[in-house]
Simulated assay, not measured.
Amino acid sequence: MAYRIIVDLSDHQLHLLDGSRVVKSYPVGVGKMLTRTPTGDYRIINKQFHPGGPFGVLWMGLSKPHYGIHGTNDPSSIGRNVSHGCIRMYNQDVLDLSRRVPIGTRVTIRP
């Protein structure tokens, strides 16, 4: 299976797709007005468990430097525009996603 990820900023959802079929959707928190999440096409380039700080249980770095998909130590931020541009997920969701997608997975972020 060649999974890919689509992040819809407007509805705060991350969709995992297998071809054109949505396998699973997760709620996310995204960038605030002054530090918006960048739109475009990227890839997951690394994974780090227990990265420390506000990143929850897992960090998955994107091919855009300094941006990633990660857990959070503030679950109330999910569904809101509060981050410095990264995509925040509930810790259990980011672990589930990480088990499903390998490094190199395509990530499309759209408005």
Results as ranks from 00 to 15, higher is better:
Ala2Pro: 14
Ala2Asp: 13
Tyr3Phe: 14
Tyr3Trp: 07
Tyr3Arg: 13
Ile6His: 08
Leu9Thr: 05
Leu9Arg: 04
Asp11Arg: 15
Gln13Leu: 13
His15Tyr: 14
His15Pro: 05
His15Met: 09
Leu16Ala: 09
Leu16Pro: 10
Asp18Val: 03
Gly19Met: 04
Gly19Asp: 08
Ser20Val: 03
Arg21Thr: 12
Arg21Pro: 01
Val23His: 04
Val23Thr: 11
Tyr26Glu: 00
Pro27Gln: 09
Val30Phe: 01
Gly31Pro: 14
Gly31His: 15
Gly31Glu: 11
Lys32Asp: 03
Thr35Cys: 00
Thr37Asn: 06
Pro38Met: 00
Thr39Gln: 10
Asp41Gln: 08
Tyr42Arg: 04
Arg43Gln: 13
Ile45Asn: 01
Phe49Ser: 13
Phe49Met: 12
Pro51Val: 13
Gly52Val: 09
Gly52Asn: 08
Gly53Glu: 11
Pro54Leu: 12
Gly56Phe: 14
Met60Lys: 07
Gly61Ile: 12
Leu62Tyr: 08
Lys64Phe: 06
Lys64Ile: 11
Lys64Pro: 00
Pro65Phe: 06
Tyr67Arg: 04
Tyr67Gly: 04
His70Met: 09
Gly71Leu: 04
Gly71Arg: 05
Gly71Cys: 10
Thr72Cys: 09
Asn73Ala: 08
Asn73Cys: 05
Asn73Tyr: 08
Pro75Cys: 12
Pro75Asn: 12
Ser77Cys: 00
Asn81Asp: 13
Asn81Ile: 01
Val82Gly: 00
Ser83Thr: 12
Ser83Val: 08
Ser83Tyr: 01
His84Ser: 12
Cys86Asp: 04
Cys86Gly: 06
Cys86Leu: 10
Ile87Cys: 03
Ile87Gln: 01
Arg88His: 10
Arg88Phe: 06
Asn91Trp: 04
Asn91Met: 12
Val94Trp: 02
Val94Gly: 06
Val94Ser: 09
Leu95Glu: 14
Arg100Ile: 05
Val101Asp: 07
Val101Arg: 00
Val101Lys: 00
Pro102Glu: 11
Ile103Trp: 03
Thr105Gly: 04
Arg106Gln: 14
Thr108Glu: 10
